[in-house]
C-alpha cells in the first residue's frame, strides 16, 4: 500500500516537474525560433511565421542593453503567444509608431528582467523596417489588472511593459501587475 502511494507521489511529482520545465524550455527555445523568423521579417518578409502553424508573427525586438537581454516581440498578447515570447497588446500603438505601445510577458520567463530595470535606464526597440528607437524608463509602477490607464493612448512615442506582480509569487492568476513606462 505504502509502496503504491510512494510510486504515485513520485510519478505525479515527475509529471509536475516536467510540465514546469517544459514551460521554461518553451519560453527559452521559442526565442531561438523567433530570432530566425525575425531575421526573415527584417529582410522584408511580411508576417514571417516562426513555425508553420503559428497564429502570431514577430513584430519587433525589445532590447535591455543594461541587462544584456533581448527578446523578440510577437503580435497579440494571448496566453498562447506569451508562452513563447513577449506579446504586443492589440489595439495599442505599433512598436516605434507614435502613441503608447504596450507589451506584456510572463513575470517568471522573459519579463523577470523588469524586476532589475531602473528609472533612467535605456530600452531599445527595433521594428520590422529596421528603425531603432531608444526609450528611457520614466516610471515603474505596481498596480492591478484593472488599471487600463496603462493602455491609454499617448501623443508621443511611449512604451509600456507589463508583467505580473509580485515577482516571487508562486501561484498564477493574481491581480497584481508591474509596469515599466518608458518614453522616447
Amino acid at each position: 500500500m505504502k509502496k503504491r502511494l510512494a510510486l504515485a507521489s513520485a510519478l505525479a511529482g515527475l509529471l509536475l516537474l516536467s510540465n514546469g520545465a517544459y514551460i521554461y524550455a518553451k519560453a527559452r527555445y521559442g526565442q531561438f525560433l523567433l530570432e530566425r523568423a525575425w531575421a526573415r521579417t527584417r529582410s522584408g518578409e511580411a508576417n514571417a511565421k516562426p513555425w508553420s502553424w503559428a497564429d502570431t508573427a514577430p513584430i519587433a525586438r525589445l532590447e535591455f542593453p543594461a541587462r544584456g537581454a533581448s527578446y523578440i516581440v510577437l503580435s497579440g498578447a494571448s496566453g498562447r503567444t506569451m508562452a513563447w515570447g513577449p506579446g504586443h497588446v492589440d489595439g495599442t500603438a505599433m512598436p516605434n509608431a507614435p502613441g503608447n505601445c504596450a507589451i506584456s510577458a510572463h513575470r517568471d520567463t522573459q519579463f523577470s528582467v523588469l524586476r532589475a530595470v531602473r528609472i533612467g535606464e535605456e530600452i531599445v526597440v527595433e521594428s520590422a523596417d529596421g528603425s531603432r528607437v531608444k526609450y528611457r524608463v520614466k516610471e515603474t509602477r505596481v498596480t492591478n489588472d484593472r488599471d487600463l490607464a496603462l493602455l491609454a493612448p499617448s501623443g508621443g512615442r511611449m512604451l509600456t511593459l507589463i508583467t505580473c506582480y509580485p515577482f516571487d509569487a508562486v501561484t498564477p492568476g493574481g491581480h497584481g501587475r508591474y509596469a515599466v513606462i518608458a518614453e522616447k
Binding site: 505525479a12 509536475l16 514551460i23 498578447a77 506569451m82 510577458a105 489588472d145 484593472r146 496603462l150 493574481g174
Partner: peptide, 24 residues
Amino acid sequence: GSLPQTATPAPLMLIAGALLLGIA
C-alpha cells in the same frame, strides 16, 4: 476589462513536483 494574465503556473508546478518527490 483587465490586463493580460502574465504569470505561468511553472513555479507552482516545480515546487509541487519537488514536494511530491520528497514525500515519495
